[in-house]
Amino acid sequence: MGIAAEAQFHVLAVDDSVIDRKMIERLLKVSSFQVTTVDSGSKALEFLGLMGDVHGNPTIQSSSVSSHVHHHQEVEVNLIITDYCMPGMTGYDLLKKIKESSSLKDIPVVIMSSENVPSRINRCLEDGAEEFFLKPVRLSDVNRLKPHLLKSKFKAQQQQLPQQEELEQKEPDQPQQKQQQQQEKEEEEMESIEQKVDEQEQAVQSSVKRKIVEESLSPERTRPRYSGLTMAT
């Protein structure tokens, strides 16, 4: 998977409007992404292998996460972009389900909506969406996806290398300092990605920008999200 990630990024686009599906598909393809489109949140979950298991296994242990991902996600998805307003499951519902899923929560989610409702935008960003795009989505918006993909790819690579750290995986509460020493090299890489993110975020609307800046200032950001999963050096 780590090597495969070197190839095209794969984006799952979710929209109930056939016109907007065609638009977003084209926008992403022009930007050299591989695209899969579906017309509902439930089909998105199905594609991601998360049907009927939405609330199940909330505490899958870190050592099984990697195989869990392989097992469920036959096709790797690097980013999900979803419409907000859809019948049945809204884009927000889909976001919540993805963030609640141990196997999917690290996939960046971007929400699109034709309505500029600040409370809605903030709610999505606070609950884990990376970006909020106002429709119609433009090429300049799509260009903002790259930093999130680089971050998720980096995380995916971290999760590729669990074997040498068997013991540490069984001790998820071990001191952060120790982990950080081992991760020095990787963190430098991560920081350079974070820097790129900051540069690209200059043009982004203020609420989104604030979120990203806070994240990159936070020390939480420089360590892997699966606290039990450490990396081989």
Binding site: S17, I19, D20, S114, K135, P136
Partner: peptide, 12 residues
């Protein structure tokens, strides 16, 4: 109307 607004704004 919401849907029509969405599709008309998507094509301009």
């Amino acid at each position: 109307v919401h849907q029509l607004k969405g599709s008309s704004s998507s094509i301009g």
